[in-house]
């Protein structure tokens, strides 16, 4: 049994690397996108507001799986062709950017008006106010919601099977069908649990560090 699990590890490791690549790249790219989206959503320029509202509606209103299929299979018809990994990454970043955008918007709206007024009195420009005063406080407020999204993202990475990319869950399915055994799938479950345990712990640490006023 132990020696069997040992033989599974190399292919699981390959799958895990793909899973983590999608995970980290999505996270790194979608958080800045989310900030931009939240600014658009709070903008007083009507056109900008409408565009972001529409974008969020489409991204949250259709399944991520459908978005992946659309970007990979749909766009080549109008002459825009991405390779498999790029297509998946675009879909994930656009999708998670919308969710992060809404989380950040909520965070920004929760910040007291007095903060803006105080910054103005102190003579800060609106750019500086946003970067130095609003963003750090907003970040603190939204941390639990971000942690939630991050955990969801870990599991959502398994959706890339639809374009044939071999991530962790697919590696498990392959081994399960090959060896006529459920052990590979159990192993995959344990790996996902370990991943989420690690990320939960990291976010707990960050939340503690940012709880300086409590």
């Amino acid at each position: 049994m132990i020696s069997y699990i040992y033989t599974l590890l190399p292919s699981m490791a390959d799958g895990l690397i793909i899973t983590l690549e999608i995970f980290f790249l999505t996270l790194i790219l979608s958080i800045p996108l989310g900030i931009i989206v939240s600014i658009g959503r709070l903008s007083e320029i009507k056109f900008l507001f409408k565009i972001t509202e529409f974008y969020i509606w489409v991204m949250r209103g259709t399944p991520l799986m459908l978005q992946i299929v659309f970007i990979f299979f749909g766009l080549p018809i109008v002459g825009i062709a991405f390779d498999r990994f790029t297509a998946v990454l675009i879909a994930f970043v656009l999708n998670y950017g919308a969710y992060f955008g809404e989380i950040f918007r909520g965070g920004m709206e929760s910040i007291d008006k007095g903060q803006y007024e105080a910054a103005k009195v102190l003579g800060l420009t609106s750019y500086k106010t946003f970067i130095r005063i609003i963003l750090p406080q907003m970040f603190k407020v939204v941390l639990p919601s971000i942690a939630n999204e991050v955990i969801t993202l870990v599991k959502d990475t398994s959706l890339v099977y639809v374009v044939g990319i071999g991530e962790l869950l697919r590696a498990g399915k392959i081994a399960s069908n090959r060896d006529v055994s459920l052990i590979p799938l159990a192993l995959v479950g344990i790996i996902y649990l370990l991943l989420t345990a690690i990320f939960t712990e990291i976010f707990n640490k960050i939340e503690k560090r940012y709880s300086y006023y409590e």
């Binding site: 044939g164 399915k173 392959i174 081994a175």
Partner: peptide, 17 residues
């Protein structure tokens, strides 16, 4: 050639991938 690499014994991956 397109194949479903989970489909033993027609096309799948051995323990070396």
């Amino acid at each position: 050639m397109g194949l479903d690499d989970t489909f033993a014994p027609m096309g799948f991956r051995d323990d070396k991938g």
